[in-house]
Computed example of a mutant assay.
Amino acid sequence: MPNIRVKEAADYVGLSKSSLDKLRCFGGGPQYFKVGRAVIYSTDVLDQWLASKSRKETWGDNDNARIDARAAA
């Protein structure tokens, strides 16, 4: 479980540093550690956050359970 700083975390998830900063400030981003002034992300947490963003379709909310239920009907 390596820990990485903001720039490396942004590269890891495929976002700009600015986008990751905004997600951290306004919500919706991955959990992080604050050590003094340093912001540190765990790659395990980044992987979980990315997995939570997976989608099966491009429209609507990320409601994979609803989509699976519709497909099963």
Rank of each mutant, 00 (worst) to 15 (best):
M1D: 11
M1W: 05
M1S: 11
P2V: 04
P2E: 12
N3M: 11
N3H: 11
I4T: 04
R5Q: 13
R5G: 08
R5A: 11
V6D: 01
K7T: 10
K7A: 15
E8N: 06
A9G: 02
A9L: 04
A9C: 12
A10E: 02
A10Y: 00
D11N: 14
Y12Q: 01
Y12H: 15
V13C: 13
V13G: 02
V13P: 02
G14K: 11
L15N: 00
L15H: 04
S16G: 08
K17R: 15
K17P: 03
K17L: 05
K17D: 09
K17T: 11
S19V: 04
L20Y: 00
D21N: 08
D21H: 10
D21V: 05
D21S: 06
K22D: 03
K22V: 05
L23A: 02
C25N: 13
F26Q: 14
G28W: 04
G29I: 02
G29S: 07
G29Q: 03
G29P: 00
P30W: 02
P30E: 04
P30N: 07
Y32R: 01
Y32N: 02
Y32P: 01
F33A: 08
F33V: 02
F33W: 04
F33C: 02
K34Y: 04
K34A: 05
V35F: 06
G36T: 05
G36M: 05
R37F: 03
R37K: 13
R37N: 15
A38G: 06
A38L: 14
A38P: 02
A38D: 13
V39K: 01
V39L: 07
I40A: 00
Y41M: 07
S42Q: 03
T43G: 05
T43P: 00
D44Q: 12
D44C: 06
D44Y: 06
V45W: 03
L46C: 06
D47A: 04
D47V: 06
Q48D: 14
Q48S: 12
W49Q: 03
L50R: 13
L50T: 12
A51C: 07
A51K: 10
A51R: 10
A51V: 11
S52C: 13
K53M: 09
K53E: 05
K53C: 10
S54N: 09
R55Q: 11
R55E: 07
R55L: 07
R55N: 05
K56M: 14
K56V: 15
K56R: 12
K56D: 07
E57T: 14
E57W: 09
E57S: 13
E57A: 15
T58P: 09
T58G: 12
T58L: 13
W59K: 11
G60I: 06
G60T: 05
N62H: 12
N62P: 02
N62I: 10
N62Q: 13
D63T: 08
D63R: 14
N64Y: 04
N64Q: 11
N64I: 14
A65C: 12
R66F: 08
R66H: 14
I67L: 13
I67Y: 03
I67N: 02
D68P: 02
D68T: 12
D68W: 06
D68E: 15
A69E: 15
A69G: 08
A69S: 13
R70P: 00
A71E: 14
A71D: 14
A72W: 10
A73Y: 07
